[in-house]
Structure formats: C-alpha cells, structure tokens
Simulated scan of single mutants.
Amino acid sequence: YYYAQSSMHMFLDTRSVPEPLDSILLAAFEFDIHQVIKDCSIALNNWWFVGHLTDLLDHCKLLQSHNLHFGSNLREFLLLEYASGLFTHHSLWQLAVDYFDHCPEFGRVYLELQIERVPLDTERKALKVIRICEQRQMPEQVRSICKIMAKKALRNNRLGSALSWSIRAKDAAFATLISERYLQDYCAKGTFSDLDLIDNLGPAMLLSDRLTFLGKYREFHRLYGEKRFSEAAKLLLSLMTAKIAPRSFWMTLLTDALPLLEQKEVIFSADQTHELMFCLEELTSWKSVPNPDRPMQDEDIETTKIELLRLALARNLAMAIVKEGTVEV
C-alpha cells in the first residue's frame, strides 16, 4: 500500500482524481475489505462481483465484524440484491432461486415476493414455478399461480385447462363457475367437451357441489350409453332429490328421463316415478313465476315438454304398479 500510494503521488498531480479502479486497488493493497466492497459497489454496474467476492470473504471468516444494523449481514444483503436483479431476466430467474436458498435469514421472504412477479407466459413456465414452490413448501404461492392460470385459460375459453388449474388451486368458487360454463355449453351444443378430464375427476369432484353434479351427470350419460338403464335412472333421480342439480337444470334432467320412461321394460319403479312427478310439479311451480325476459317461443316449448313428461310419467306409473303387483302375486 505504501509503494502504491507513492506511485500514485508520482504519476498524478494534485488536481487529478484517481480512477475508480485505482481506488479499489489501493483499498485492496491496504487490506481494507469493507472499502473494497464499497468502492466496487459504486464503480461496477451490477452486483455480480461484489456479491461473489463478499460470499468468498465470508466463507474465509473475514467479514465477521461487518454486520449490518437492519437484520442481515453484508454477504446476505449483497446476494439478495444480485438475485433480485436476476429475477427480472427472462431466463436467469431460475438461477436466482438458488441464490435465495443460500440466504438463510431473508432468502425465503424475498423468494415469496419475487416468485409471484414472474410472468407466466406459458403453462410450461407456470409448472416450473409451481415445482419450485412445491419443493420449498410454499402452498400459498402455488394456489395463487394456479388461480392466475385458471383465469387466463377461462378468458381464452379453454374450459378443460381452466378446470384443471382451479382444481389444483382448490378454488371451489372458480371450479363452480367453470362447471356452470360446462353445463351451459352442454345445453347449447348437446355434448360435453374435455370428456377425458370430466370422466377422471375422481375425488376432485367433491371440491364444489356444482363440480360434483357435473361429474355425476357425465356418469349418467356414460351409464346410459352402456345401456345400464337401471343404474342410470337411479343416478338421475338422486341428482334431483339430493338437490345437487341446479334448479335451472331440472328440465334438462327430466327430459333425459324421457327415453328411460319410453323403454319397453319398466326402468323407474312406482316410488321412483312418484318422486319424478313431485320434482316435475315443483319445477312447474317454480317456472310459473312470470319472467318477462323469457321469449314466448321458449315458453311454448317448455309447456310442450311438461305435457309430454306428465303423459310419460303417468304411463310409466301404471306399468310399474302393474309389474310390482304381478311380482307380489
């Protein structure tokens, strides 16, 4: 340091200001570690050098006396600053996670704040972020990301993806909303989209009543397609009597019962037919409330459906009573 300073005086006049590198080298020759870090922080355009230098010095036990007053040591502070900068980069943000992992005091807090700011451009990137959060037991961040992806998928009318994300987020309200969309699409088109997803909901259908109904209603169609009419009839009736089905969907369910009522073999028992009749009358009372927004044509169609249902139910009841009476005799 003594010879370096003498050389500086020899080659610089009194009016010249030393270059930043000269000041850094002088502090290094003097073994003033703190001054080296300070000068480098001012002179260099990022935290890479000071962060890694400080980390090495800390591992050499040379920074023990340089603790900060606001809760973290100098090493962690500089690594946190460097990692925060990496998080703004489109491809280096994953590397920043490793730096946060090596900051025992505030690393997790910083990661929780920064991870929610990662732009979720694709589902693949979202899954990467979720995997990072799951590995570090960050359930709130996982739910938040899943909700964001569910809303994005719904805006793009990708119902299957939206439902998958909402189930993963355990968001009952959003799962209910998407289930309603599925049912609306079914009423408009007469078919379900994303059958593989709906068929394999499993325990996830218990997340909300509407999702349960969607899964069970799809199961009814599957049973009907397999000609397991008795099981399909029992399931259809339970959806109405257990009040799982939305009232606005009852007419669709009763209409689905018509082919079963028209079978040559009696599918619905007398008791089951009485329950269907009760549901029809309850629906009729509910629909009797005037609705000025409903077109007259729709009113006529509804009336025709109700009359057909009454006729089919009465015929089925008579056949069921005869059949059950014959069995008893």
Rank of each mutant, 00 (worst) to 15 (best):
A4P: 12
R15T: 12
D22V: 13
S23L: 03
L25V: 08
A27Q: 11
F29D: 06
E30H: 15
F31W: 13
Q35I: 07
I37V: 15
L44S: 03
N45H: 06
V50D: 05
G51Y: 02
L56P: 11
D58R: 02
H59M: 14
C60N: 14
Q64Y: 12
H66R: 09
N67A: 12
F70P: 01
L78W: 10
L78A: 07
L78T: 01
E81I: 12
F87I: 08
L92D: 14
L92S: 15
L95A: 10
A96Q: 06
A96R: 13
P104I: 04
F106A: 14
G107Q: 10
R108E: 03
Y110G: 00
E112I: 09
L113E: 08
L113I: 07
E123K: 02
A126M: 10
L127C: 12
Q137Y: 04
P139C: 02
E140N: 08
V142S: 14
V142R: 00
C146D: 10
A150N: 05
N157T: 14
L159M: 09
G160Q: 04
S166K: 00
I167Y: 05
R168M: 11
R168T: 11
A173C: 01
A175D: 06
T176I: 06
E180M: 05
G190S: 05
G190W: 00
T191L: 08
P203C: 01
M205T: 09
R210K: 12
R218Y: 05
R218M: 02
R222M: 11
G225I: 03
G225W: 11
K227M: 05
S230T: 06
L235R: 04
L237F: 02
K243S: 13
R247F: 11
R247L: 07
L253Q: 04
L260I: 14
K264C: 07
A270C: 15
C279P: 00
L280Y: 10
S288W: 00
S288K: 08
P292D: 00
E299A: 15
D300W: 12
T304E: 06
E307Q: 09
L308W: 15
L309N: 03
A312T: 13
L317A: 08
A318M: 05
M319R: 10
A320S: 11
A320R: 02
V322R: 07
V329G: 15
